[in-house]
Design a protein around this nucleic acid. Structure first.
Lengths: 152, 152
DNA sequence: CAGATGTCAGACCAACTGATATGC
DNA sequence: CGCATATCAGTTCGTCTGACATCT
């Protein structure tokens, strides 16, 4: 019996993706990059489109609105973000990154890039660029891709 | 070296990796592919090198020995794997996939490939091949790469 | 009032820590 | 006896569900 009748590929792309992501998560701990990886990603997104609505943020990051609150509470406690009421609709919150948040982000990104260098040690620079491009294109148009819908 | 000042890269490679992985995990639920994604990956690995030691399995999958037990218990309960004592060292367990496991894996892989087609809709076949290759090469030599150390 | 947004509290699930049993 | 392997129980962490408050 041959379960993989025609594909002798050792592991599927999704499996490889999951495994490599596990490598990153295992190594990108808080004491290594200075904050949780999820927080770093959140701050990156807030830099990209400053003045993002909280619900848009949650949708882009693919976290439930409830989880989004907790995530922002952590960043708020650290002084990395600020929640302001939307003057146009006072139910909503506009989330902005603070100077302290930007500074912490820059430091964390530097640490993460160093880690990236270790994780992707088998790939030369042009291949890394290729990988980043493919991942970005795959994400594009996904639920949480580089969607400029945060803009007013 | 100032990473933030002149690099307008929207998101780092690691962030993209994490995000795309989240997309997969959100969609590859048990009721979609028939089993947990982690179980699928485990079975794939057991097909690749049949007769793998339990500790080698855990190391490759990057799960603690404790978690490995629970993971195998689930697969064992379903009748997908079998644990046999190693005759050469009866402390050890050799894990093998059962015919039922192979059958379930084939079905789950088909479902996952369909999902992969949806997730990577922005990439044409050659680009998907490229992505799979880059991920495989990045994983190679990592803690849990295609390491043939399971062989005796 | 009905609907939307954000917040919190409690339940739930997955992962980690420590202790136990067996075999070398 | 010391060490290794696997297993389980208890804890902890992250996530999800449901109730509530505010605003339109």
């Amino acid at each position: 019996m041959n379960p993989a009748t025609k594909t002798p590929q050792t592991t599927g792309t999704m499996g490889l993706l999951s495994q490599l992501n596990r490598v990153v998560y295992r190594r990108a701990t808080e004491d290594v990059i200075g904050m949780k990886l999820k927080q770093l990603i959140t701050l990156e997104l807030l830099v990209k489109n400053e003045g993002c609505l909280q619900q848009e943020l949650g949708a882009t990051l693919m976290v439930d609105p409830n989880n989004c609150v907790l995530l922002l509470n952590e960043l708020d406690d650290r002084g990395y973000v600020e929640r302001r009421r939307d003057p146009k609709d006072r139910r909503r919150h506009i989330v902005v990154i603070t100077p302290a948040g930007g500074k912490a982000l820059a430091k964390a990104e530097a640490r993460l890039e160093a880690l990236e260098g270790e994780v992707l040690v088998n790939l030369d620079p042009s291949e890394r660029e290729q990988l980043r491009d493919l991942l970005a294109r795959a994400m594009d148009g996904q639920d949480g891709g580089p969607d400029p819908s945060c803009l007013d």
